[in-house]
Amino acid sequence: MLEVEREQRSVDGQSQSRDVAIRVTHDAQVQTEAPAERELVFELDTVSCYYGSFRAVKDVSLDIQRNAITAIIGPSGTGKSTLLRSFNRMNDLVPGAHVTGQIRYHGLDLYAPKVDPVEVRRRIGMVFQKPNPFPKSIYDNVAFGPRVGGVKGNTDDLVEQSLRRAALWDEVKDKLRTSGLALSGGQQQRLCIARAIAVSPDVILMDEPCSALDPVATLRIEELMIELKQNYTIVIVTHNMQQAARVSDETVFLTMDEDRAGYLVERGLTPQIFTNPQNRLTEDYVSGRFG
């Protein structure tokens, strides 16, 4: 539809038509359901997550766009983290946890028998709620992923590059050999992001990455996320609706059903979810009436 309009205008005049085309494009992006033709990283098809016989998440179907930030929001206990952890098979580590339905990653079934969860986690990195640097030096924290991934020899450049990308280099370049635990909370979280970047993943999953941080550190992480989406696809679980509104391109809203299982209520472009939600539950949640 966009293309057609542009062509029609360009027939009319030259300089004027370009202005119009730009305006139309701008309007169209706000109004259309999804941004024009972007690659999908994840496709979820009626995904349910179980812990033993308890169903924590039920029948979620959604897509995750490449090089965008997708926020998963919703009240506590609606399975947001569970859903996120099914994206890189971290839930495999919990005894009794399993997933039904299909999660496709670049078109491939993530839970196919041939898929090695270790390989999955090398491509899909994760940052946790509480910063969890290893009790070793800043350098070794960043170099851990590449080393277990089989990188031999000098990792200096890789470490520097990762720390730069995580906007931490200037603060730590003179103390790379000191313990990662000696950093402040916000720095620790950026170290964890640097550590995740060092294995050059395709996706970074973030599970409430700022909930243990003060507002200034939170702001730095948010700025960093917006920078990082140039190169990575980011999925973030957050309790903080302002955060979702500030950083994300798309928002997914989950809530809890009567059987205590989380389900998807609504998803869409972030401005739409926050200004013009289609579902009553979404509207109540984003306007602060519950949750």
């Binding site: 986690r121 969890n132 290893f134 851990f144």
Partner: peptide, 22 residues
């Protein structure tokens, strides 16, 4: 702490690498 194991697993470490190195 379990968070140390999670951190290692999330970076693509195998169980043995996690045990051995962390």
């Amino acid at each position: 702490p379990p968070s140390i194991r999670e951190g290692a697993f999330a970076l693509g470490a195998t169980r043995w690498q996690t045990v051995r190195r962390e």
